[in-house]
Simulated assay, not measured.
Amino acid sequence: MIVDTHLHLINKSALTYPWLTGVPALDRDFLYSTYEAEARRVGIETALHMEVDVDPGEMELETSEVRQLSQKAGSLLKGAIVACRPEEDGFAAYLERQQGDRLVKGFRRVLHVVPDDLSEGSLFRENIKLLGGSRFTFDLCVLPHQIPKAIALADLVPDLQFVLDHCGVPDIRNGAEHPWRDHMREIAKRPNVVAKISGVVAYADESWNVETLRPYVEHTIATLGWDRVVWGSDWPVCTLGANLSTWVATTHALLEHCSPDERTKLLSANARRIWNLA
């Protein structure tokens, strides 16, 4: 069975997503009911919702929407990684409001859509330090050339669990492995970083197959180790390259030579440990 650590839900009648106008293929509703039907067929039994970069004024509304879905009988949703703005003065108060909310498992600020120096600002860094030693994780969504920025944050707060999304977003479409490979080796030296094997099909061209993805997935696992990798669908972003069922099938093909223990760690056990999931 699988724990999906990276599910996006899009409900345009409830929330505003400014970035969707630039991605026509995703500029529509992707609702929980649609995801659940396919997820159950492929063995997903638990999911964490990942924030979808809604309008900043709706960040807490997004969490409320996820909470309503999680409270339905038999819901797969067991937690949420919520949006945040560490570069703003209101972050400390925002963090305080999340402390007692057991649905909230961590935070993310997408960094590849903002200037490279945003994470180097003094306020951003002081606010990230507030997460140190807490139960929360912080997801790092960066492009390969920005991985050193992620490394700097991991070094800044060694007692915070960081999660590198999408294998570090390698440029699979163009077959580019450098500087991504070296940067992955370097960030893997930080014990407070885990990586998500999530949605990499979205970064390949339409002719991709299992072997197209294998070098990127295997390098991520080899550098981080089996105790520091988790699986994510990145649905519906993954649909830019494949539907959910195909991505799950591809994952199983990529894991064909691993042991049952290794498979379990990647697909469920590590996620349950990191986010304290039942």
Rank of each mutant, 00 (worst) to 15 (best):
V3M: 04
D4G: 02
T5G: 09
H6P: 01
L9T: 05
N11P: 04
K12V: 01
A25V: 00
L26H: 00
R28H: 12
D29I: 04
D29G: 07
D29H: 14
L31D: 05
Y32M: 00
S33I: 06
T34E: 10
E36Y: 09
A37Y: 02
E38N: 07
A39W: 04
R41C: 10
V42H: 13
E45D: 10
T46F: 11
D53I: 03
P56L: 11
G57F: 07
G57K: 09
M59F: 04
E60G: 03
E62P: 08
E62A: 08
L69G: 10
Q71A: 07
G74Q: 01
E88K: 10
R97C: 06
L111G: 00
D117S: 13
G121H: 00
L123M: 09
L123G: 12
E126M: 04
L131E: 12
L131S: 12
V142P: 14
L143M: 06
L143Q: 12
L143T: 05
L143E: 13
Q146N: 12
K149T: 14
L153D: 01
A154W: 05
L156T: 10
Q161V: 01
V163R: 11
L164A: 08
E177G: 03
H178W: 05
P179L: 07
M184D: 15
R185P: 11
K189F: 08
V193W: 11
K196P: 05
G199E: 01
V201Y: 00
A202V: 04
Y203T: 05
E206A: 12
S207K: 08
N209D: 13
V210G: 05
V210F: 14
E211Q: 11
L213D: 01
Y216R: 09
Y216I: 01
E218L: 03
H219L: 08
T220C: 14
L224M: 15
L224F: 15
R228D: 06
V229M: 07
V229T: 14
V230R: 03
W231K: 01
W235S: 00
V237W: 00
C238H: 01
L240T: 01
A242G: 13
N243G: 12
N243Q: 15
T246V: 11
V248D: 04
T251M: 09
H257R: 08
H257C: 07
C258D: 08
P260H: 05
A269D: 07
A271C: 08
R273H: 09
A278M: 09
